[in-house]
Write a protein that binds this DNA or RNA. Structure first.
Lengths: 333, 333
DNA sequence: CGGAGGATGGCAAACGATTACCACGCATAG
DNA sequence: CTATGCGTGGTAATCGTTTGCCATCCTCCG
């Protein structure tokens, strides 16, 4: 397959020299030697072995990303951001989807540590109350001790540096916006129980409602389309219709829109609906939402994890979000 | 960090014995030794170094997946399938998004080879006519020569085994379905030029139209939502409205629906719309489509790539698809 | 009681790259 | 003419595992 030994033989130099020219060591090498090595390498199609290199340097040019669910566009946007900078810096991105399971997160974390990845970006669910929580933290600590840079993304439930945006404020802002449209009965379809994101967003919603002197109206939900759909069906069938419904994320909000419409309730004519995140499907469907800096989150996280100097760790960084009014909300009449 | 040497010291056995216990070698080890090693390993929190292992075995427990764009749910579903079986088999999944660039595909392929991945599933775009085509094939060949199992997924543009579904037949079937609804003027919004998937689907559409004695009506498009939206706007503004429009994929079809509606044209009342793939957003939006076995494709590919015996390579496998009528199509009146 | 042979355990050689340290040669200065 | 030192190139140790081969020891049989 072409090893340094092959090259050194072909070029008639020592392995050390070959190694030195091939990765621009500070150790000087004459132009003649250099060229011979380069030629030999080109002819042999040399590719250094990550394994051998990792064995001696202790690190591989890999950055791991652990996400909750790769099919969820929320994570896909983040992953894209990470990939972008990792690629430019010559790193490989190892994406693992934990399928919303803390145990899977731990497994992936351990595996990533075994690969001696340069760093891992932990963009997963963020359970605040989980039997495996402690074990997770331990896995994180182990990874960090072994030299990997670990960063939590979009939640802060672990004891390690993080990059986030203010989910609570985002929920507050969208609620506030809906209030400003003149709606009074505003419901909130929550995410899975015990998840950092759900908690924060629900809190933001409730705070905004309280600030407006309104009573909160919370419904159980989830993070997926179906949860919103079901909740909407339930809401439509139950008591008096709210003026507006806010979903814990875009998928849920879209589910709400569809659920409402399938029950014969026009959106936004009779009920306004809004989401949070501004993922791609939100654009599809004209959903009013709050733009979460997902891609930028990935960018930033990767930059921090892959930074040359581990010195200036900002430790905790918060990125801004932005309101995106579209067509699923309208002024109350 | 805990190496075999540490364990062997602590357990008072040789490194060889420790190694044998820890990975169930056929070489017999007494129960006493076994237990001592196991205890020591547990106490030290031992995790074998992938690098060292790879160096001697020549392989890492990694399966690479190269996709066109991770934000595209089409690929996300595939990735999920791969992850599922890879995880159960103890493999790590390394997901790379090529952002629809053949050069990026080549880079990722080379990187994956450098990691000595067990296999790589190449689920990317499939350009049929690309300046880098030959270079890509060469990278694939190199990877295979170096012992990796390479598989193309969902297209067959490279000389290596593949797992696919019949895109052409899918397009044929959905077109045929729309025809059976009584529509005559049926347009097709195509994907990016020169991509295997676009070509196949357009061909399927045209074949079905020809079989029905109808004239095809093809529009330029792309793979993303915006392409469908723009095409719809264009179609709405231009000549006589078609009875139905088929998008090269779901995202495009959804774009068409939105574009049409924003132009004041009701779907499906005035124009029926259908997509292909049955990704998650198709369910959201009630889009009539053809269910492509994306998840199963990932499952199957991973199983083949990770199979113990490289013997029974089915070489080329084709999975079935299925029509999914929903609410964006209706019978012609 | 001698020996065959299975059951166990250890030694040491890889695997491929990095890098500290050494050696040689030649130029320049004293 | 010798000492100093920089510019270059090589030697070899090292990283952590796997594994072929060898050494023991014990058991069972003739």
């Amino acid at each position: 397959m072409g090893s340094l030994a092959d090259i050194s033989e072909r070029a008639g130099v020592s392995i050390a020299t070959a190694s030195r020219v091939l990765n621009g060591s500070k150790h000087p090498v004459s132009a003649a030697m250099r060229e011979r090595v380069l030629n030999a390498a080109a002819e042999l199609g040399y590719a250094p072995s990550f394994a051998a290199r990792a064995l001696v340097t202790g690190r591989t040019p890999i950055v791991g990303v652990i996400v909750g669910d790769i099919v969820d566009p929320y994570f896909a946007h983040i992953a894209r951001g990470v990939e972008h900078v990792a690629g430019r810096l010559g790193y490989l991105t190892m994406l693992s989807s934990a399928h919303r399971s803390t145990e899977a997160e731990i497994r992936h974390l351990r595996a990533l540590r075994a690969t001696q990845a340069r760093g891992v970006i932990f963009a997963s669910s963020g359970y605040t109350d989980d039997p495996h929580r402690q074990e997770l933290q331990q896995a994180v600590d182990e990874a960090r001790e072994s030299g990997a840079r670990v960063l939590t993304l979009a939640h802060r439930e672990l004891d390690c540096p993080s990059v986030t945006f203010d989910s609570r404020a985002a929920a507050y802002d969208i609620t506030d916006y809906v209030v400003s449209l003149g709606h009074r009965r505003i419901a909130f379809v929550d995410g899975p129980k015990g998840l950092f994101t759900s908690l924060e967003r629900c809190a933001g919603y409730e705070a905004a409602m309280a600030a407006a002197g309104l009573d909160p109206l919370r419904f159980e939900g989830g993070f997926e389309y179906e949860a919103g759909y079901d909740a909407a069906q339930h809401i439509a069938a139950a008591g008096p219709l709210p003026d507006a419904i806010i979903g814990v994320n875009d998928d849920v909000a879209i589910g709400i829109v569809m659920g409402l419409r399938s029950a014969g309730i026009e959106v936004p004519e009779r009920v306004s609906v809004a989401g949070i995140n501004d993922t791609r499907p939100a654009a599809y469907t004209g959903l009013t939402t709050v733009s979460a800096p997902l891609y930028e989150l990935g960018l930033t996280a990767a930059r921090i994890v892959l930074a040359e100097k581990g010195a200036d760790e900002p430790s905790d960084k918060v990125l801004p979000h932005q309101l995106v009014p579209r067509s699923t909300t309208r002024r109350a009449n």
